[in-house]
Design a protein around this nucleic acid. Structure first.
Lengths: 197, 197
DNA sequence: GTCTATATACTGATAGAC
DNA sequence: GTCTATCAGTATATAGAC
């Protein structure tokens, strides 16, 4: 007999993940105690262990799920884009910015809590991050081959672009002055043409 | 009678600051115990309190010293630059990148451990960060007034540029492929003209 | 699956001898 | 200024009743 969808156990597991995202984003993984987490969920500390193996595995699962989703969605966005290198690049930028606006907590954690993972887990997440960087480097190489863009160094340019595009996570608030489309357009312009006129 | 320069106490205090920069950069402030710190310095945990008031004040002092130096050096770089808006902007970019290459640990801590400060200390560091951002926004406004650059939004453009320029902290290694001048040139080109050709 | 209770270790910080 | 010793609180994780 199949497990009942949305049973109490599953709802608790989901609540733990959401509460962990909030607390880790706000205070950092090391500063989040399992007592804090349990209190946020509304259960006793020991009950957490019906849903997680260790605090470490909880962090890894959150990061792994984020990276899996990011890679899959990016590939889908590129598959839906036109064939022109600049169009594909625009598609990457737009998806990256929108994804980072919508899931700023997951992104923040995946970028800044790598230090809290043990060596084996960190290696797995790093490999997925390298896969993601490789997507952008590939797009830059396509553009350079087509003669529509130029850069002194593919890899460092990709790092610089990703740092800029990921920066939205640190200041974006949904109630802010600019809407999402304006933020995407501004970052696309900056990446492609800079600020000089 | 003046205190002897480089006395044992001062050398210990300096060693604590350096060790703290290393450990916080590597593991994060919350994950650095004062026992770890004392061991790295080569003293007993209790002896730390001859040099620091609390763990919190140690973090604040490190961040405050960094921000003070960054603001002073930036003003000096701008004072030494030519009067043309683009020259002043190039001077800002070059100084920012070089400073961040040379003091990546301090920068990383100041950017990502704000959450570990209590409210009053965080407000002081945030005010200094806003001062720094205001320098760049001012330069962008100078350039826009002179008609040599354009942007859809001054503040968000400044955030995006700072995120990009600060990104060097996360991957730079002195033994890397590109030397500092090349990294500065690449980021200046990216900021001013983007990647499109 | 959640609860109470607890094991075991570690945390920041302090007191007082030298 | 550094040491030994320790306080009081908290950390992750586990055991067993319900």
């Amino acid at each position: 007999m199949a497990r009942i969808t949305g049973s109490n156990g599953e709802r608790t597991a989901l609540a733990i993940r959401h509460a962990a995202l909030r607390l880790i984003h706000r205070h950092g993984f090391a500063a989040m105690s399992l007592r804090d987490l349990a209190a946020e969920v509304g259960i006793r500390p020991g009950s957490l262990y019906n849903h997680i193996a260790t605090k470490q595995s909880l962090l890894f699962d959150l990061m792994h799920e984020h990276m899996t989703t990011l890679l899959a969605e990016t590939d889908a966005a590129l598959a839906a884009a036109g064939p022109a290198p600049l169009d594909r690049l625009r598609s990457f930028i737009a998806h990256h910015v929108l994804y980072h606006l919508e899931r700023k907590r997951e992104v923040y954690i995946a970028n800044f809590e790598l230090r809290a993972l043990d060596a084996a887990n960190a290696a797995r997440i790093l490999a997925m991050r390298h896969d993601y960087e490789a997507r952008l480097i590939g797009l830059l190489e396509e553009g350079a081959a087509a003669g529509v863009l130029a850069t002194a160094d593919m890899r460092v340019t990709a790092y610089a672009m990703l740092a800029m595009l990921t920066g939205v996570c640190t200041w974006y608030k949904p109630s802010g002055r600019l809407d999402r489309a304006a933020i995407v357009a501004l970052h696309t312009d900056l990446a492609l043409d800079g600020i000089r006129r």
